[in-house]
Design a protein around this nucleic acid. Sequence first.
DNA 1: CTAAGTGCAAAATGTTTGCATACTT
DNA 2: AAGTATGCAAACATTTTGCACTTAG
Lengths: 147, 147
Amino acid sequence: MGIRSKYNTKQRDVLIEYFKTIPETHVTAGEVTRVLIEKGESIGQATVYRQLERLVGEGVLKKYLIDGNSPACFEYVGDAKHVTDGICFHCKCEVCGSLLHVNCETLTGLKEHLLDHHGFQMDPLRTVFYGICEECARKQVGQEENC
Amino acid sequence: MGIRSKYNTKQRDVLIEYFKTIPETHVTAGEVTRVLIEKGESIGQATVYRQLERLVGEGVLKKYLIDGNSPACFEYVGDAKHVTDGICFHCKCEVCGSLLHVNCETLTGLKEHLLDHHGFQMDPLRTVFYGICEECARKQVGQEENC
DNA sequence: CTAAGTGCAAAATGTTTGCATACTT
DNA sequence: AAGTATGCAAACATTTTGCACTTAG
């Protein structure tokens, strides 16, 4: 379903190179544009959006949605074999925004389960588990049900 | 965390009653407004957004974020135990856009696994599995790797 | 040379907000 | 009466699009 790039443009390279310098980091389209412009690169916002979508389609970047009212985040996963192999799953904390990489057989089993029992071919590269991380869960205990 | 309503207004009742008539259905704020207006109800878009947020805070509705570029969806769960229990998961087909409700123990087990083994408190209301549904997968066989 | 990509500015989208008015309790 | 909710329209933020121009292959 992803549209792929056919030409290697200056802007595309600049984007990829920038993402390579910030592995395991999630940035929004706006942030990327701002940083690159500040660096003196010549790139427009529309191009960033268009290339980002293509890179996601090519599996070079991964797109995260923290919540519907914040902009989407992107992360470089091009070289991360464990990610592209689909053995790596991502858990995103909705409170602090931290990203937990989970690399375990149970989740690989989940993928098979969905396929075998529900006919659904799940894509681990696109799927993100949202929830609350250990640390934030601990902090939130005790402040529930308060008016 | 959610702001609660203190008064019972006409608009609030209309909203709740409407949602009760469409259980297990996802609707966006815009759709709800359109339907109610068409029914001759007097309700403004801002009120719908405000009440929807309150109802989510009160646990009457659940808010789903299928993907960042589509509007948020709301579903009545006031009586739906399977949803509030977090046993209901969603699979979204990236080809045809269909949404599959999966209601199965393996996924409940997954939730527990993430908590027990990775300390991550996964939220099934926010998490959507992306991939390809059975029907689209069948259609795509044979047309892979085409330039 | 031709298809693909870019940039700008405008448009589209979904959601929130300010404020005067109306309604609930 | 006092506080809360509503409705409108304007404001917002993010993302998409139309179109002329540039660039890669």
